[in-house]
Write a protein that binds this DNA or RNA. Structure first.
Lengths: 222, 222
DNA sequence: TTATAAAGTTAAGTATGCTTAACTTAGTAA
DNA sequence: TTACTAAGTTAAGCATACTTAACTTTATAA
C-alpha cells in the first residue's frame, strides 16, 4: 500500500496533469507539495519503481493507471468527507477542506463506501468538485470554465470554487455567494484584472486572485 | 505535537496503568504495542525528555499529566468515533474499533467537539466504555467488574465488552448478547474456567477467553 | 551468596521522507 | 556556438521509528 506521503504525491501529480496524461515537472510538483526539488527526484524514483508513474531523469513525470487509481481513490475520499462534514455535521464549506485533508488518508474502502451510500451517491462536493465513484469514474461531466473567461453583461452560475483557500470561501459567503448562485458580470477591469459583479441588489469587486479560484457555467438564454 | 506513534505509546501506557499512576514495564508495553523491547527503551527516553512520562532505566514508566492529557484526548476521539460510526452510519459494533483506531489520529479538536455535540455529549461508547469530555474527565463512574468474579445463580447486566476482539463481539451478537442485556449465571466450570449463562430462553457456554473480555454490573434485588 | 533466567538496554543497521549544498543537464539569448 | 540561467539531480545528513544481536541489570531459587 502507498504511504500517506505517496498518496499526496500521486494526488498532486494527478491534479497537475489535469486528469490527462500530461507530463508534470519536478518544479511544479515541488511547489504544489511545498517540498524541495530534491525530495521530488527521490520520491519520483520510488514511485516509478513501484509502477505508479513513468519517470525519466530530466524528462518529467507521467502518471500511470496504477497511480491514477490511488489518486482518484484519495480524491474520492476527500470529497466525500467534505460533503459528509457539511451535510451531516453541519460544518461550513470553508471549514471542511483541512479536515478532509487529514481524514482522506485514514479511511478504509469499507468506510468510505458506507459514507457514499449514506449520502446517496452524490455527484458533487460542497465546492462543486465532482466525486469519483467506487471505480474511479466521475459521475458527471463538468462543463464549466475559469471566471476570467466571462463576458461583460452576461449572467452566469457559480459552479465551482477552489476549496484550498479558506479566506476566499469565507469572503464569498460574506457577500452572499454560494454554489449555483446566479451572478451578473458588470465590468471587467483591464488594469488589475478584477471583475465587478452583481449579486441580487448589491455589487462587488472581485480581485484577480479571487477570480482565479472561481469557475462558472453558462445560464440558458442569458 | 505528539506523533501518531507517540499517541499510541501514551494511550497504551495509560491503559496499562489503568488510569492511575501505576508503573508500566517495558515488556508489557512491548506486548501491548507489538513492538520489540528495544523500541520501548528508545521511545521511553524521548517521551521522558519531552515531559510526557517519568522514566528511569530498569525502573519502568510512569505517565505524567502531560502524557495523560494526550492519552485521554486520543481515547476520547476513539470512543466518540466508534459511537458516531454506529449511530450515524449504522456500522455494527464489531466493525468500528479498527476504523476508530485510524481516525483517532487524524481528527482535530474542533472536529471531535462537533461530533461530541452532534451525539449530544454521550457517556458511553458502543462497547460500554466511558467517554472522556473535552477536559479529559470521564462523564460517569464505571462500577462494573470482570465476569469471572460473578456468582452462580445470580443475574447481571452486560456493562462492557473489550472492543479489540472483533470475533468475540460478533459471537456475542450471534447469541443475542448486547450491552445492558440481562444474563443469568447457570454454572461456573472449574476445569476450564468457562461459564454457562442463560440469555432469554437459551443457554450458552462462554470459554475462559471470552469471559476475560466481558464486564458486568449487579442488578438490583437479584 | 551465587548462578541463572528474565527483563531491560545499547548499538548497529534499515526504511521513509525530508533538508541543504554541490553538481549536472537543458534551454535560451547574445 | 557559447555562455548563462533555470531546472533537475545527487550526495550527505537528519529525524522518526522500527529491527536484531549483544550486552547489562535485576530478581530469584538453590
Amino acid at each position: 500500500m502507498a504511504t500517506i506521503s505517496k498518496e499526496n504525491y500521486l494526488k498532486a501529480i494527478y491534479k497537475l496533469a489535469k486528469g490527462n496524461g500530461k507530463v508534470v515537472s519536478s518544479s511544479e510538483l515541488a511547489t504544489e507539495l511545498d517540498v524541495s526539488k530534491a525530495a521530488i527526484s527521490e520520491m519520483a524514483k520510488k514511485l516509478a519503481l513501484q509502477g505508479y508513474i513513468n519517470y525519466q531523469r530530466y524528462k518529467g513525470i507521467k502518471i500511470l493507471s496504477k497511480g491514477k487509481k490511488v489518486a482518484l481513490d484519495v480524491i474520492r475520499k476527500h470529497r466525500l468527507w467534505e460533503l459528509f462534514l457539511v451535510n451531516t455535521l453541519g460544518l461550513s464549506w470553508e471549514e471542511v477542506h483541512s479536515e478532509a485533508e487529514n481524514l482522506e488518508h485514514s479511511t478504509t474502502q469499507f468506510l468510505i463506501d458506507k459514507i457514499d451510500e449514506h449520502l446517496d451517491f452524490p455527484m458533487f462536493d460542497p465546492h462543486g468538485e465532482p466525486i469519483p465513484n467506487k471505480n474511479g469514474n466521475y459521475r458527471s461531466i463538468i462543463n464549466d470554465f475559469a471566471m476570467k473567461e466571462c463576458e461583460v453583461g452576461k449572467v452566469y452560475k457559480i459552479s465551482r470554487v477552489n476549496d484550498r483557500n479558506k479566506e476566499l470561501i469565507k469572503y464569498l459567503t460574506q457577500i452572499n455567494i454560494k454554489l449555483n448562485k446566479k451572478i451578473k458580470i458588470v465590468d471587467k477591469l483591464r488594469f488589475d484584472n478584477s471583475i465587478i459583479i452583481e449579486v441580487g441588489k448589491s455589487s462587488h469587486s472581485l480581485s484577480e486572485k479571487l477570480v482565479e479560484n472561481i469557475f462558472l457555467t453558462k445560464v440558458k438564454g442569458k
